[in-house]
């Protein structure tokens, strides 16, 4: 049966202590314990990427990570992308380029794209497509998402001067 434990973790730059059930995934803990429901559940098998978060600088499917594994980890979710009232260039570009329709996959795409741009602020369209291939979108056909990531990478380069 169930065992509860406390997990100390950093989520979007803030230290948090969460009481979790050992059977919980990181996705469950984020949504049901931390109250961060921006991370979405699409398949619970790591195939759709809707639950993508950054954990210790790597993109993971949070449905495939046990909550207990988050002990001591630094996690970034979609709620951590904006800087206060300032949207991340990816968020702004997704809005401007109409890169979302229903929006359920959007948090996962934003998080995954952020991890790409953190590594490479001038990716080619082919590199963007490869990096995002683990995130399924059923509405947009990806075209406008690729355009938005290209736009955000240009914004980031321009901001750097």
């Amino acid at each position: 049966m169930s065992t509860n434990r406390m997990v100390s973790t950093t989520i979007n730059g803030e230290d948090m202590a969460l009481i979790i059930d050992d059977r919980m995934t990181l996705l469950d803990a984020l949504r049901d314990r931390a109250g961060l429901t921006g991370t979405k559940e699409g398949c619970l098998s790591g195939d759709c990427g809707a639950c993508s978060v950054i954990m210790n600088d790597r993109v993971v499917d949070s449905c495939l990570v046990m909550a207990a594994e988050a002990e001591g980890a630094a996690i970034v979710t979609v709620e951590g992308l904006a800087d206060g009232t300032e949207l991340h260039p990816l968020q702004r570009r997704f809005l401007e380029q109409a890169a979302l329709q229903c929006g359920i996959c959007t948090p996962g795409f934003l998080v995954t794209a952020k991890s790409l741009l953190d590594r490479n602020n001038n990716p080619s369209a082919a590199e963007i497509r490869l990096w995002l291939a683990g995130n399924l979108c059923r509405c947009t056909g990806y075209d406008k998402i690729i355009r938005a990531v290209e736009g955000a990478s240009a914004d980031l380069r321009a901001a750097k001067g």
Binding site: G38, L87, L100
Partner: peptide
């Protein structure tokens, strides 16, 4: 014209409330 959708901000910040939320 192509204005930004009104529900867009909530959907790029994770605040939009879907059924499971």
């Amino acid at each position: 014209t192509r204005p930004i959708r009104h529900d867009g901000e909530d959907k790029v910040t994770g605040r939009a409330q879907y059924g499971a939320d």
